[in-house]
Nucleic acid binder design. Structure first.
Length: 798
DNA sequence: GCGAGCAGCGTACCT
DNA sequence: ACAGGTACGCTGCTCGCG
């Protein structure tokens, strides 16, 4: 019997000859699919009913669905051992049918077959499988392990692609408008463009017609035979478009390893396209995910902007192209260049994003394709499911819709934020608790199965809410979290030494980053309404302990004579006053002496100067979550100000930054005022370029779903009228122009804006952004009012 | 009829 | 479709004033 080794990539299933097989995509020298017979199953809690359930058969759609066999098993259910009936089914779809027919409590019925298989065999993506097989069928798994060196031997081939379409109306219509170019890049020398009109570029391959182009691309793909295919918004645009064109041209979009096209997948709210035998990574949802967790901060989620943000490089900008016009004129050199450029940029972006996705995939036991479409909640869920199965604990079920809505209606009290006193301060120390919520969860063993009722025996920790948690053996949540943090601590040591440019270092760095992302998502998952592990009492205890610890640290700081300027969740801003750094560090040490082992208050940094401003309404109060600090090394840390928000124009943001710098670095009120005056003059002169005036705002609903009018929506609707596609999630780039009465009427897409309204930019953008800071320098409300009734704040500078 | 004041909606940010 | 806490702009309404 042949014994082989291969890297595991993905799993699904097939049903043949009355048997369900797990179908594994593996890669040794080349990619293969293996079959392994494995019956789907679920559990039922029905003592004494095993015989009855074993004989269950129900008719569904003219077919008889039968229980295949049953087995009595012992599992841990909510922290207690219990006898359950394991019900095996013929095929995965039977699980749902039989579960609904059984009038007892059932468990683990809502788990995908492929996931079930991976969990039960503890096979993680990119692990090495050694197996014996006969034909395609695996008889035995000899060994399953993760080994960095073996893994590195298997090179995953990657390719990026991009298409151009004929678009006389702005947005192309897939049944009517042809695709005119398909470009690809494999990261090396193989790259090019398929099209079907004459072109002088050497990398262009001219086919006879659109069908020839489609076929040519598919043939090229088969030749390169990549394991990973990168696209940008390819699940929603490129792939469905190509498929529609293939249909119109009566050909097959043979991009899968079995010659098929792709399957549309819905994972939560996002769409995916699964290409058989390969891992299709749409970088757009991946970029959105990175934006959501705060890894990148992009103004717009276009390929260009994300590329620039992720790689730090500038993408060669081509002026906006009218693809249809160039196609009609036969003027294709520039278009081909542009198309190839997009594939190359997509490839490079993919290479930037892939390492983190790979590590997340391995850590959460989720195939790469699924990982690329996952929310952080799904990643944490997968991780906890893995830990549960390893321990023999029953995986909690997802809540029903009604339950989820009920949970959502009752939010959990969150963190404490101290009201700062507005002003400019010198010599500040900032401390924060390292991983506050994760460390609380581990320290106090916060887990639904460890929650004890009044009067229960055993040593417990009592949270400020009164909830009690059993000490001793760690629950699934704290144990998983501790594993992540321990892994990360080990990696951090290795990362201290080593060549930062080496592939090994980058891999470990990505792994460390993945661990951090996962650890930071645990608390959110505990309080997430649709979570399998949701527990109100647990989530409340996490935040209550958090508030307790930050209050306690603040009180101790004050007792030591420090003034606490500000605090938010896990951070503490202390005014050093007459005390020096030494005393601050001594205070830190004393706090840490009395904290649980996993918790630690750390020095974030010392700052020579910091600014807190007042709220716009209620000017006597300081604004929370808004401050600017000058560190000793000269760097400036800015939080919350307009200048860090994408929904403010850069003319306002740049001016605000100038003012903050003048104050922090030089303490110069005159310089600050001068900067503002200059901007106002520039705006009045009408010479400010559109880019500096553009405001970016995301639409979180479909345009037609809004009940109110807003500038971004008004601009979006004008764009729609021109044939542009605007959907849920689109970022609208708009400018306030001169034409119209209300601000919304004046709003126009940046690319169509011919002029701008200086009054708006002076009075609604620049002045509000800078006045709150200048006020801290003595330009107060009264001083302004003493100048008489004014038409605008702007005239103050005249 | 008009501006001030306010509620509600919506977005983006902080930790 | 991961949590809650927060600031603040724009719109559209009510209200008081003249």
């Amino acid at each position: 019997m042949a014994r082989r080794k291969a890297v595991f990539l993905d799993a699904d299933y097939t049903f043949r000859n009355g048997k369900t097989y797990a179908r594994l995509l593996v890669k040794g020298k080349k990619a293969t699919r293996l079959l392994y017979p494995y019956d789907p199953y679920f559990y039922c809690d029905a003592p004494g009913k095993e015989a009855e359930i074993a004989g269950l058969a129900i008719s569904k759609g003219g077919e008889l669905v039968k229980v295949k066999r049953t087995e009595a098993v012992e599992k841990v259910l909510r922290g207690e051992k219990r006898q359950l009936i394991k019900i095996y089914c013929q095929k995965p779809a039977d699980v749902v049918v039989l579960r609904q027919a059984i009038p007892f409590k059932c468990y683990e019925h809502g788990i995908q077959y492929s996931k079930r298989f991976m969990l039960d065999f503890d096979i993680t993506p990119f692990a090495i499988l050694e197996y014996e097989r006969e034909g395609r069928e695996v008889k035995k798994f000899i060994k399953i392990w993760e080994d960095e060196k073996l893994e590195a031997q298997v090179k995953l081939g990657r390719l990026a692609f991009d298409i151009e379409t004929y678009n006389p109306l702005g947005a192309p219509r897939e049944r009517k408008d042809p695709a005119v170019m398909i470009s690809y890049a494999d990261g090396g020398s193989d790259k090019g463009v398929f099209t079907y009109k004459p072109n002088s570029k050497p990398f262009v391959r001219m086919e006879q017609d659109e069908k020839g182009m489609l076929d040519g691309f598919c043939k090229k793909l088969a030749e390169i035979d990549p394991d990973i295919i990168y696209g940008y918004n390819s699940s929603n645009f490129d792939l469905p478009y190509l498929e529609a064109r293939a249909q119109v041209q009566k050909t097959a979009l043979a991009i899968g390893r079995d010659g098929t096209s792709f399957r549309k997948i819905k994972k939560g709210m996002v769409n995916g396209a699964k290409i058989t035998g390969r891992m299709h990574i749409d970088l757009y949802p991946a970029a959105r995910f990175f934006g959501f967790i705060g890894l990148i901060k992009a103004q717009e989620f276009t390929l260009e902007k994300i590329y620039e943000e992720m790689t730090g490089k500038k993408k060669k900008m081509v002026k906006r192209l009218d693809i249809w016009d160039m196609w009609d004129k036969g003027d294709l050199d520039e278009l081909a260049e542009y198309s190839l450029g997009d594939s190359e940029v997509t490839y490079e972006l993919g290479e930037n994003i892939l390492p983190l996705l790979l590590e997340l995939s391995k850590l959460t036991c989720m195939p790469l394709f699924d990982t690329s479409l996952s929310t952080s909640g799904q990643l944490v869920e997968s991780l906890l499911m893995q830990e549960s199965v390893r321990r023999g604990e029953i995986i909690p079920s997802k809540p029903g819709e009604a339950e989820a809505i009920e949970r959502q209606k009752n939010p959990i009290e969150g963190a404490f934020v101290k009201l700062p006193e507005p002003g400019i301060y010198d010599n500040i120390a900032v401390f924060d608790f390292r991983g506050l919520y994760p460390s609380i969860i581990i320290s106090y063993n916060i887990d639904p199965s460890k929650l004890v009722k009044e009067g229960t025996e055993g040593e417990v920790s009592t949270s400020p809410t009164g909830a009690k948690f059993l000490k001793g053996e760690k629950g699934v949540i704290p144990a998983s979290l501790e594993r992540l943090l321990d892994l990360r601590a080990g990696l951090k040591k290795r990362l201290k030494t080593g060549d930062k440019e080496s592939p090994e270092y980058r891999r470990l760095y990505a792994r460390s980053h993945a661990l951090k992302i996962l650890a930071n998502s645990f608390y959110g998952y505990l309080g997430y309404a649709r979570s399998r592990w949701y527990n109100r009492s647990c989530a409340e205890s996490v935040t209550a302990w958090g508030r307790m610890h930050i209050h306690d640290a603040a009180a101790k700081a004050e007792a030591k004579g420090f003034r606490v300027l500000y605090a938010d969740t896990d951070s503490l801003f202390l005014l050093l006053g007459s005390r020096g750094k030494k005393e601050a560090l001594a205070f830190l040490e004393e706090i840490n002496k009395n904290l649980p082992e996993k918790m630690e208050l750390e020095l974030e940094n010392f700052y020579t100067r910091g600014v807190f401003v007042s709220k716009k309404q209620e000017a006597e109060k300081g604004a929370k979550k808004k401050y600017a600090m000058l560190a000793e090394d000269g760097s400036i840390k800015i939080r919350g100000f307009e200048l860090v928000r994408r929904d403010w124009s850069s003319v306002a943001k740049d001016t605000q930054f100038g003012v903050l710098q003048a104050i922090l670095r030089e303490g110069s009120k005159d310089k600050a005022v001068k900067i503002v005056k200059e901007t106002v003059e520039r705006l009045k002169g009408g010479k400010v370029p559109i880019e500096e005036l553009t405001i970016y705002t995301q639409l979180t609903k479909r345009p037609e779903d809004y009940d109110i009018v807003s500038p971004e929506l008004a601009a979006a609707k004008k764009a729609q009228a021109r044939g542009m596609q605007v959907e849920k999630g689109s970022v609208i780039a708009y400018v306030i122009t001169k034409s119209g009465k209300t601000i919304s009427e004046k709003a126009e897409m940046a690319e169509h804006a011919k002029d701008y309204d200086p009054d708006y930019y002076i009075n609604n953008q620049v002045m509000p952004a800078v006045m709150k800071i200048l006020k801290e320098l003595g330009y107060d409300e009264d001083e302004l009012k003493n100048k008489g009734k004014q038409k605008s704040l702007g005239s103050f500078f005249e």
